[in-house]
Amino acid sequence: MLTIIDKYILKKYLATFGVMLGLFAPIGIVIDISEKINKMIENKIPIMEILVYYYHFTIYFMNLLFPIFLFLSVIWFTSKLANDTEIIAILSSGISFTRFLRPFMIGATIVSLIVLLMGFFIVPKSNEGFNNFRYTYLRGDGKETVRGKNTDVFRQLSNDEYIYVNSFDVASKTAYNFTYEKFTKDKLAYKISASRIQWNPKTKNYTMYDYVKRTVGGLDDKIEKSDKKDAKFSFDLDDITPVIYIAETLSLGKLNQFIEKEKKRGSSNINVYKVVLYKKYSIPVSAFILTVIAVAVSSMKRRGGMGLSLAIGIALAFSFVFFDKIFGTLAEKSSFPPLLAVWIPNLVFGILAVFLLRNAKR
C-alpha cells in the first residue's frame, strides 16, 4: 500500500517527466521547422500534411530522446527534494534508502510499460508517417518517390525467384523499373519487366504498366507485351519497399515475421532488423537503471546546488545515448551480435547504478 510520502514522490516523478516532455517537444518542433521551412514552401506542402507530420514527429522525437528526458526529470525533482532537506527528513524518520526508492521504481514501471506498448504499436506507425513525409516531400522534391543510390531493391524470394525495383512511391504504393526473374535448374525460365508496378489493396494483386514477359525457349524466345496487366505474385508489398526504414515501421508481430522471412532469404540487413527488435525491449528497461542513477546522484545536498546535479545528469544521460548509438551502429555494420550490442549500454550503466546506489546508501 502506498503511503503519503510514496504518493508525493510518485506524483512528482510522473508530473516532472510530463512537464519535461511538454517543454522539449515544442523546442524540437521549432528547430525542425526552422530547418525544413524552405523545403516545405518550395514543395507547396498542404498544411494538413504538415500538421500530421508534426504529430508523428513529436512521438518519434520523444521516443528517440526518452532516456534523456526521464533522467533529467528525475535529477531535477530529486535535487529539489535534497536542497529543501526533504530527503534528510524522510531518511531521518527511519525509512531506509532502499525503501525511499520504492515510489521511484513504481514510477519507472509505469513509464516503462507505456514506452513498451508504444514501441510495439504506436511508435512504428509514427515512424512510418515521419519517414514517409521526409522521403516524399523533403528528399523527393515533392515527387512522392523514395529515390537515391541506396533505394534500389534486390530480393531473392526463393531459390529460383528474384525481383528488382529501382525506386518506390510511398503514397501510391508504386514501384518503378520492376523486374521479376524465374529460374528452373539454374537456367532462366522467363523474365517479367514493367516500367512500374502498383499494389491494389482491395483486390490483393498488382497492376503492371508497359508489361513485357520473355519466356526462354530452346530455339527461340517468346515475347508477350501489354500496356497494362494485372497479376498476383508470391511476394508482399514489403518485398519491393526499400529497406531504408521498413523495420522501424513494423509492429512487434509483423517485425518478428519480417525477420524470420529475411533470415530464410539470407538477407545481409538482418542485423539492422534485429537491433530495431531488441531495442523495443532494452529501452523500457533503461528507465529503471537511469532512475536509480539519477536518484543516487542527486539525493545528496551539494554546495553547487541543483546546477551541479544537472550537469552530472546531462553528462551521464548523453553518455548513455552515445553508448546506445555506437553499439547499435556497430551491430548494424559488422558481425557484432545485435543482442549484445543493444544490451551493453544497460549492462554498463546497470553496474554504474549499483555502485552509485551503494555509495548513496552510505
Results as ranks from 00 to 15, higher is better:
Ile90Phe: 10
Ile90Ser: 10
Leu91Ile: 14
Leu91Phe: 09
Leu91Arg: 08
Ser92Glu: 10
Ser92Cys: 05
Ser93Ile: 07
Ser93Tyr: 06
Ser93Gln: 03
Ser93Met: 09
Gly94Asp: 07
Gly94Lys: 06
Ile95Ser: 09
Ile95His: 09
Ser96His: 08
Phe97Val: 11
Phe97Asn: 01
Thr98Gln: 07
Thr98Cys: 09
Thr98His: 12
Arg99Ser: 12
Arg99Lys: 15
Arg99Asn: 04
Phe100Ile: 11
Arg102Asn: 02
Arg102Lys: 12
Arg102Thr: 11
Arg102His: 11
Phe104Val: 05
Met105Asn: 12
Met105Ile: 11
Met105Ser: 10
Met105Lys: 11
Ile106Cys: 02
Ile106Met: 14
Ile106Trp: 11
Gly107Glu: 06
Gly107Arg: 04
Ala108Cys: 05
Thr109Trp: 07
Thr109Arg: 12
Ile110Ser: 08
Val111Glu: 04
Val111Tyr: 02
Val111Lys: 03
Leu113Val: 14
Leu113Ser: 09
Ile114Tyr: 06
Val115Pro: 01
Leu116Trp: 01
Leu117Asp: 06
Leu117Tyr: 14
Leu117Cys: 13
Leu117His: 02
Met118Val: 03
Gly119His: 02
Gly119Met: 06
Phe121Glu: 13
Phe121Arg: 06
Phe121Cys: 10
Phe121His: 13
Phe121Ile: 13
Val123Trp: 08
Val123Cys: 08
Val123Gly: 00
Val123Met: 13
Val123Leu: 12
Val123Phe: 09
Pro124Val: 04
Pro124Cys: 00
Pro124Ile: 02
Lys125Ala: 02
Lys125Arg: 15
Ser126Asp: 13
Asn127Arg: 09
Glu128Gln: 15
Glu128Pro: 01
Glu128Leu: 15
Glu128Thr: 04
Gly129Tyr: 03
Gly129Asp: 10
Phe130Trp: 10
Phe130Pro: 05
Phe130Ser: 09
Asn131Trp: 01
Asn131Ser: 13
Asn132Trp: 11
Phe133Asn: 02
Arg134Gly: 08
Tyr135Glu: 11
Tyr135Thr: 11
Tyr135Arg: 05
Tyr135His: 15
Tyr137Thr: 00
Tyr137Glu: 07
Leu138Trp: 01
Leu138Gly: 01
Arg139Glu: 05
Arg139Thr: 03
Gly140Ile: 03
Gly140Asn: 06
Asp141Gly: 12
Gly142Ala: 03
Gly142Ile: 01
Lys143Tyr: 07
Lys143Leu: 15
Glu144Phe: 13
Glu144Asp: 13
Glu144Pro: 02
Thr145Tyr: 03
Val146Pro: 00
Arg147Val: 13
Gly148Leu: 00
Lys149Gln: 13
Lys149Ser: 07
Lys149Met: 10
Lys149Arg: 14
Asn150Ser: 15
Asn150Tyr: 13
Thr151Asp: 11
Thr151Gly: 04
Asp152Gln: 15
Asp152Val: 13
Asp152Glu: 15
Val153Lys: 07
Val153His: 00
Phe154Gln: 09
Arg155Thr: 09
Arg155Cys: 14
Arg155Ser: 13
Arg155Met: 09
Gln156Gly: 14
Leu157Asp: 02
Ser158Glu: 08
Ser158His: 08
Asn159Val: 04
Asn159Ile: 11
Asn159Met: 08
Asp160Thr: 12
Asp160Ile: 08
Glu161Cys: 03
Glu161Pro: 00
Glu161Asn: 03
Glu161Ser: 01
